[in-house]
Design a protein around this nucleic acid. Structure first.
Lengths: 162, 162
DNA sequence: CTTTAACCTGAACCAAAGTTGAGGTCAACT
DNA sequence: AGTTGACCTCAACTTTGGTTCAGGTTAAAG
């Protein structure tokens, strides 16, 4: 409840983009980028400069942590959109949306572990490319992930003698 | 030892790009792409068409398996470059270079697990953005990975009341 | 001999997550 | 009043792993 400045230029206890950059450890260009993507928002001063609420610091922290966990920005944005718009998010809110990342992480760890085990088998048998190897089997559930190949591998390698 | 054709057009037991595509499950455009990147090689017929040795089938299988494990093409290429150039790679050769992926996979699983455990802590404490949280600590070894931020987070969030 | 399928090259385009640069404005200090 | 330094926008460029398209050639089948 301090005296508000008359021409709304500098509401003290808002952050400039530079402040936010320094304190979040994210570059200014990245903050602009996040804003274009709708992950954070700002008001503008009479001089068209951005001013962020302090709460934004926590949002940016969440974004960075999420990226570190391997979540794409689009998904992070979708999660942030589930936060209440009418009030400042609480610890409980953050806890809720973090839980989703935890589950995601679990799933990815499991998937990588399965992949590793298959790879171990393949190393053991020395084939690493054949129809009896799970890694190259298009009917394996793992084959569904990832962009690109129509199918992973096809029969007929072994008899060709390569 | 069948009779070789006089004008070298079709050495029977080489593969056309279409053959290779069908049998490896990789599109023709991707094969062209791999070749531009030096991951596979071909000879050309008198009519400028590609002909692949059967061995290439195994190379392509290795490429796809490696991608599935999450290795970038550049690294796959580097690994393939360590294969002997003077003879057809043996199962032992493939075993050797696959072992590197296995170790890589192990390391990534471990890293993700650590990340998950940190996240669990953060969910527990409800902070998910503060200096006492390992996930946002720039001095954490995990912070070294990934492109972009100069540092992950900085002190002073908590007292600001966001 | 003609038609069609497969092949060739090169250029343009896609997504993600930004960075870099040009050209211009705003704000604070001297 | 002038000079910094921080800010603004918009456009172009980066990397990775390809795809799609246009325009042209080759090869196999009828």
């Amino acid at each position: 409840m301090e005296a508000p400045n008359p021409a709304v230029p500098w509401d003290r206890d808002e952050l400039t983009v530079g402040d936010l950059a320094t304190r979040s450890g994210v570059t200014v260009s990245a903050l602009h980028f996040y804003e274009r993507k709708g992950l954070i928002t700002s008001r503008r001063t009479s001089g068209n400069q951005r001013r962020y609420r302090r709460e934004t610091l926590r949002r940016v922290a969440f974004i960075r942590v999420s990226q570190r966990v391997g979540i794409p920005l689009a998904d992070i944005g979708a999660a942030l959109d589930t936060l209440p718009g009418d009030r400042t998010p609480t610890a409980k809110d953050w806890r809720r949306i973090s839980q989703a990342w935890h589950d995601d992480l679990d799933a990815r760890i499991e998937q990588l572990s399965r992949l590793r085990d298959h790879l171990t088998d393949c190393i053991g048998c020395g084939c690493l490319s054949l129809r009896r190897c799970a890694l190259t089997n298009p009917h394996d559930a793992l084959a569904e992930a990832g962009p690109g190949p129509r199918t992973l591998l096809v029969d007929g390698l072994e008899p060709d003698g390569a």
